[in-house]
Measured scan of single mutants.
Amino acid sequence: PEDLERKVRELQKNGVSPEQIEKILRRDGVDEREVQELVKKVS
């Protein structure tokens, strides 16, 4: 979803590592495939 992507970009802009971003997304209940997609987009 659009807002998730925005969140991921925000986190990355704040210097959060892709690994941390993955953890955060998983903790928020984002589905694994979605997590991978989002992280791939920003890394």
Rank of each mutant, 00 (worst) to 15 (best):
R26I: 14
R26A: 07
R6V: 07
E10H: 08
K13A: 13
L38D: 01
V30L: 14
R27M: 13
Q36W: 07
V8G: 00
V30P: 01
L11F: 04
V8C: 03
E2N: 11
G29M: 02
Q12C: 14
Q36A: 11
E37I: 09
L25K: 00
E2A: 12
D28C: 11
Q12F: 15
P1K: 14
E19K: 08
S43T: 14
K7L: 13
R27Q: 12
S43C: 14
S43I: 15
E19Q: 10
K23Q: 14
L25Y: 00
Q36L: 10
D28S: 09
V39C: 09
L4I: 08
S17H: 07
V39A: 03
V39N: 02
I24Q: 04
V39G: 01
L38E: 02
Q36V: 09
E37N: 10
P1Y: 15
L4R: 04
R27K: 10
E5S: 05
N14H: 10
Q20N: 10
E5K: 08
S17F: 02
D28L: 15
V35N: 01
Q12L: 15
V16M: 14
V30N: 03
Q20T: 08
I21V: 03
R27E: 14
E22G: 08
L38N: 02
D31V: 04
E32D: 07
V16W: 13
G29K: 02
D3P: 05
E2L: 13
K41G: 09
G15E: 01
E32P: 10
E10K: 07
R9W: 11
S43M: 15
D3E: 11
V39E: 01
R26C: 04
E19Y: 06
R9L: 11
V42R: 03
L38G: 02
Q12N: 08
V16G: 01
E32K: 04
R33S: 11
K7I: 11
L4A: 04
D3A: 11
R9Y: 09
V8L: 04
G15V: 01
K41W: 12
K40F: 12
R27A: 15
E19F: 05
K7V: 09
E10T: 06
Q36N: 06
P1N: 13
P1D: 10
L38R: 01
R6N: 10
L4N: 05
E34A: 13
K23T: 11
Q12A: 14
D28F: 14
R9T: 04
E34Q: 13
V30S: 02
G15F: 03
K41R: 10
E34P: 01
E2M: 12
K23F: 12
K40M: 10
V42N: 05
E19P: 03
E2Q: 12
Q12V: 15
E2V: 11
N14T: 07
V35K: 01
K40V: 06
L4T: 04
V16T: 06
V39I: 15
D28E: 13
E19C: 07
E5I: 12
G15H: 04
I24V: 04
V39L: 15
S17G: 06
K7F: 14
R26F: 05
E37R: 15
S43E: 09
E19S: 11
L38F: 05
E5D: 05
G29H: 03
G15Y: 02
L4P: 03
R9P: 00
Q36G: 04
R27W: 06
G15A: 02
E10P: 00
D28M: 15
S43P: 05
P1F: 14
R9D: 04
L25Q: 00
S43A: 12
V8R: 01
K13W: 06
R26K: 09
I21L: 04
V35Y: 07
R9N: 04
E34W: 14
